[in-house]
Amino acid sequence: MAELLVIRHAQASFGAGDAASYDRLSDLGHKQAEVAGRALRETGWVPDRLITGTLTRQKETLRSMGFDAAPQTHPGWNEYDFHDLLDARFGGEMPDLVREDRKTHFRTLRETILEWQAGGLSGARESWSDFTARVEAARAFATAEPVERVLVISSGGAIGQLVAASLEAPPKQMIALNLQIKNTSITRFVFSGSRFFLHEFNTTPHFAPPGAADLLTYS
């Protein structure tokens, strides 16, 4: 069976005041991507296709991993717009604590996603059903060509939804999975025709060597 490796982008600029500022890798993020790319090549795993979403942090991750070929892009691999969802929840006036304190931010994000899944946040630019449909479209795009190894750089929410869908898990499991996903972690699927299975989730063997554990981040 063919393999689909979906890697979460490296660390972005958490705490930035707007989506555009967030959508760039931090210095640590570039280092994470370099280590992940080197480790992948050392195992002899060479992709036949490279795909990213359209986000800057995803494209920067692929470049810093050392893959120079121009990737294909599909917007279905993009993250849900959490800035927009939080703005919809708080009427455009997100509390400073939610923006600046990591623990408060992620607790509030979880609550917001559950509300979104339940049909709330009507002012958001993207509905939950639209999000799940585009992730499925991205999966179909990535697995459509007759190749053996596909490498995708995506984001935590899209990966969480892809895993949940592959396991036929309830929607609330998406955010539970999402919040576990480490920067540059590898989630591996195998596929053949219409068959599509999760093989491993959220692994970071490239952070196992001594000293590399300090590179581990979640946002």
Rank of each mutant, 00 (worst) to 15 (best):
L86N: 09
S129C: 09
I153F: 15
V150R: 01
S122R: 01
H74A: 00
R149S: 11
E60H: 08
E60L: 12
D130N: 01
G120T: 03
R99E: 09
M94Q: 15
F131A: 07
F67I: 05
E60M: 10
F90P: 11
D81I: 05
D84K: 14
P146T: 01
W128M: 00
R149H: 15
R89H: 14
E79V: 13
L97V: 07
S122I: 11
I153K: 05
E145V: 01
Q58L: 09
A124D: 09
G92M: 15
G53F: 02
F82P: 03
V135C: 07
R149L: 13
N78M: 06
A69E: 15
S64Y: 12
T61P: 14
L151W: 08
G156Y: 06
E60G: 05
S154Y: 08
H105M: 12
D81Y: 11
R63A: 13
F106T: 10
F141H: 04
A69F: 10
M65L: 00
K103D: 06
H83T: 08
F131L: 09
T104N: 05
E60W: 10
E136D: 07
P95N: 05
Y80S: 00
P146F: 05
Q58M: 08
S154E: 10
Q117R: 10
E148A: 11
D81L: 11
H83Q: 12
A133W: 10
Q72I: 04
T112C: 13
E79D: 15
G156F: 07
V135K: 00
F82L: 03
I153G: 10
V135Q: 02
L55T: 02
W128P: 07
L109H: 12
E100P: 04
I113G: 01
D68F: 08
Y80D: 00
E79Y: 04
R102W: 06
N78D: 13
D87P: 14
I159R: 01
D68G: 13
P75D: 02
E93T: 15
F67M: 04
E100V: 12
A133H: 02
A137N: 02
E100K: 13
M65W: 09
R63W: 14
N78L: 12
W77A: 05
I159K: 00
A88Q: 11
L151R: 01
A69M: 13
S127I: 03
R107L: 09
A133P: 01
T73Y: 10
G119Y: 03
L151D: 05
F141T: 00
R139V: 15
F106L: 10
H74T: 02
N78A: 06
T108C: 12
S155W: 07
M94Y: 03
A144C: 00
F90G: 13
F82C: 01
E100M: 12
F82T: 04
L86M: 15
S154T: 02
G91K: 01
E79N: 06
T73W: 08
W116H: 04
K59C: 07
F141Y: 08
R63D: 08
R89P: 08
